[in-house]
Design a protein around this nucleic acid. Structure first.
Length: 482
DNA sequence: TGGGGTTAT
DNA sequence: ATAACCC
């Protein structure tokens, strides 16, 4: 395996702060830094904590599922490894990529390209999910503002941490500051530019994050540092396995211009790409220079303005802490499911897994949803239908307690939801079932304003192993200190 | 094209 | 409830 350290140590030796007292005081007079198109950081006095001059890190683990599998079974490390879900290889390690494999190849194509490919089944996401949350918890030690994107990516707003270190550097009378990792476009750092200095400090923090991820979790990955989420995400991919890159504002246009198609802009998905192509737009420049008025008429004001800003690299969306998940779901796809008993069996399986997860989560779901996918050869590509309903309160209360009071009523509810979508007396053919718990609420005792909330934070319920038999855990929590 | 997630309408 | 987006 590769070294934990960066493979490249190409920092230039000479970032010395010129003046003691620092050139980067807020009072710094008009620095002649060139204004770049679409720059976020205009030179106005800006209330602190506002959207201007933020420093954002985007982290992106290398082939995450494959890494987790290799940690659990080190024998796999030096072999080409793919993670399989149904007949798809959803990700693979770099050994396998060297032999030509890509993400989301069919098992057939993958085996053809690479007969020695070792495949592990990755349909059960449990270990990936657990490792994923360890990563975001680690990042939360740097700043509480961590936003998850899928299982393997995170945004971290480190603006305040950077400001602290900046202040410390100034107190220290200005030692040297050098960039960690790559600078996009090989752009030269301007020590008289405050934003440059902030981003350089951001690059050091990003390096510390990656170090911590490797030392404590054994995971390698990329990071990108920039002044907003869009840019940090785009720049993190510029040097691919296990490296990091910082974007300085002057190279922003080069970055978005380097995308070969509007589809590559995060936030412009399949559907809007198709609509934009009908307007004759395909490059990022096309979108930048297109008439805003016509675009608004075509896509609606909100989407039009949003994606046109994206095309300039502008993104004022905040990093919002993800916290615990908003929903828990479990799904399974298959070739065919066409009888009601079959549906019931699948639903029971999905539900059992979900109940296991929700009891570990500790919160209680107030809404349940069933989703299906019907087979159809002339499919409008991936259409799903769903029905949801509130969970009756007498069922909700039985949740933390040994699960099986709850499964029968829930299966009943789910089958009713199923019959709302499928006329069971007619033939049907499903290719997917999914059960989702949402509207998750904390235990009554831990809800803000309740007595247990305050008692609990004085002294959290010691989960020291033994549980009180027959006593619902939420009651244990609310009663144990009274 | 898996097995998840989120937000906006 | 669906439709869009993300991985």
């Amino acid at each position: 395996m590769e070294l934990p350290e960066e493979e490249e140590e190409e920092e230039e030796p000479d970032w010395l702060c010129p003046e003691p007292g620092g050139p980067w005081n807020h009072a710094a007079p008009g620095r002649g830094s060139s204004t770049t198109l679409g720059a976020q950081c205009h030179d106005k006095t800006v209330p602190s904590g506002s959207t201007a001059h933020r420093v954002i890190v985007h982290t992106d683990l290398d082939c995450f599922y494959a890494q987790v599998e290799m940690i659990h079974n080190p024998e796999l490390r030096d072999k080409p490894l793919g993670v399989q879900q149904k007949y798809l290889v959803v990700t693979c390690n770099y050994e396998a990529r060297r032999l030509g494999l890509q993400k989301c190849m069919s098992v057939r194509d993958a085996k053809e390209k690479c007969p020695e490919l070792v495949l592990v089944n990755g349909e059960d996401l449990t270990q990936y999910r657990e490792m994923s949350y360890k990563v975001t918890e680690l990042l939360e030690e740097f700043s509480p503002l961590v936003e998850r994107l899928g299982f393997d990516e995170n945004f971290v707003d480190i603006t305040e941490l950077v400001e602290k270190r900046l202040a410390q550097l100034q107190r220290d009378g200005c030692s040297k500051v050098s960039v960690s990792g790559h600078v996009y476009n090989n752009q030269t750092v301007n020590l008289h530019d405050v934003m440059h200095i902030r981003l350089v400090i951001g690059s050091q923090i990003a390096a510390e994050m990656r170090e911590a991820m490797y030392n404590r979790l054994g995971l390698t990955g990329c990071a990108g540092v920039a002044s907003n989420k869009l840019l940090s995400k785009l720049v993190s991919g510029t040097f691919k396995p296990n490296q990091q890159t910082v974007l300085l504002p002057e190279s922003c246009q080069d970055l978005v211009g380097s995308l070969d198609h509007i589809r590559k802009v995060p936030g412009i998905g399949y559907k809007t790409t198709k609509r934009l192509e009908l307007l004759g737009l395909s490059s990022v420049r096309d979108l930048q220079t297109f008439s805003p008025v016509i675009l608004e008429k075509e896509l609606g004001v909100s989407i039009a303005q949003h994606i046109q800003k994206l095309s300039y690299g502008e993104d004022d969306s905040p990093v919002t802490s993800s916290g615990p998940p908003q929903s828990l779901s479990d799904e399974d796809s298959f070739k065919k499911c066409s009888s009601e008993v079959d549906v019931k069996r699948k639903i029971e399986e999905l539900l059992a897994n979900l109940l296991d997860r929700i009891s570990k989560d500790g919160r209680k779901p107030h809404t349940i949803r069933l989703t299906i996918r019907k087979f159809s050869s002339t499919n409008k590509w991936f259409s799903r239908e769903s029905r949801q309903c509130p969970i009756p309160s007498h069922v909700i209360q039985k949740f933390g307690t040994g699960n099986y009071d709850v499964v029968d009523p829930l299966v009943g509810i789910l089958m009713k939801l199923f019959r709302k979508m499928i006329k069971v007396e007619m033939p049907f053919h499903l290719t997917l079932l999914s059960v989702c718990f949402s509207n998750l609420k904390a235990l009554p005792s831990l809800t803000k304003g309740s007595i247990g909330f305050y008692l609990t934070r004085l002294s959290p319920p010691s989960s020291s192993g033994k549980k009180m038999e027959g006593v619902p855990q939420d009651q244990v929590n609310s009663c144990s200190f009274v």
